[in-house]
Amino acid sequence: MEDEKKLAEFQTRLKNGESIEPKDWMPERYRKQLVRMISQHAHSEIVGMLPEGNWITRAPNLRRKMALLAKVQDEAGHGLYLYSAAETLGVDRESMINDLLSGKAKYSSIFNYPTLTWADIGVIGWLVDGAAIVNQTMLAKSSYGPYSRANLRICREENFHKKQGYEIVATLANGTDAQRKMIQESVNRWWWPSLMMFGPTDKDSPNSAELTKWKVKIHSNDDLRQRFVDLTVPQAKAVNITFPDPDLKFNEETGHWEFGEIDWNEFYRVIKGYGPMNRERMNARKKAHEDGRWVREAAEAYAKKKKVLHEN
């Protein structure tokens, strides 16, 4: 009875656009869905450091090297903000990381694709960050205060990421023949996986309805995907890059770019762990975690010794 009354009050608060704070009463499902979603978002930032990190040591000039390093560093920061936001819901970071490393928790499938050329760094900034920004701009308005604030900070910091990506894309597109070939080949590989980033189509998305009900999500996967395509196609045209989709065409009536069918088999296969890089990504994270254990233990042991010393 009590809970039903609280639930009704909670729904009213959501309806009024109020922000929910850590100590507020919230339904268990709301808490659970948030933890799942925020930790998944955090894991994506951390695993997402790997494909781009792959090119930090090979960036072609000093400016690019610094920009890429700063960008990947930002991703570490964003992972940290998001873990902190999830921690306000009563889960600790270590257990979230354990869930990631054991394969229990998911992260964005896009990072299970390899970065094979320097052009991939431009394309990730342009398409992958572009897609992420569309998503995070929505999440900055989500009903849970700490998550919404984390996303706000992330969006503010990420505005340079997409720009640096597009700058690389444009430079290559206006470069030598080899560079033009490099960028088009990269776009061909990343276009479809980028569209998959928005998740399954609305009718197949099990979590979407509930997240929308809780006002964690405000727009549907398909709406966001469409927004992304509409934004991106003109940017490709501006630098004479094509997308590998024969069905891509502008619909005068709706004012939207129509696109072909996404290969959902590929989408589900990669989610289930069978993308080109799933194993390698997890092995890299596990190795960092294991190799770092003695360092974390050392700092903790030192802190304990000093505390004892201080107290005596």
Binding site: I46, M49, L50, G53, I56, T57, K65, L69, V72, Q73, A76, G79, L80, Y83, A284, K287, A288, D291, G292, R293, V295, R296
Partner: peptide, 10 residues
């Protein structure tokens, strides 16, 4: 910079 993504803690 080689550490980026592989450090002991975020």
């Amino acid at each position: 910079s080689e550490w980026c993504g592989h450090a002991p803690i975020i």
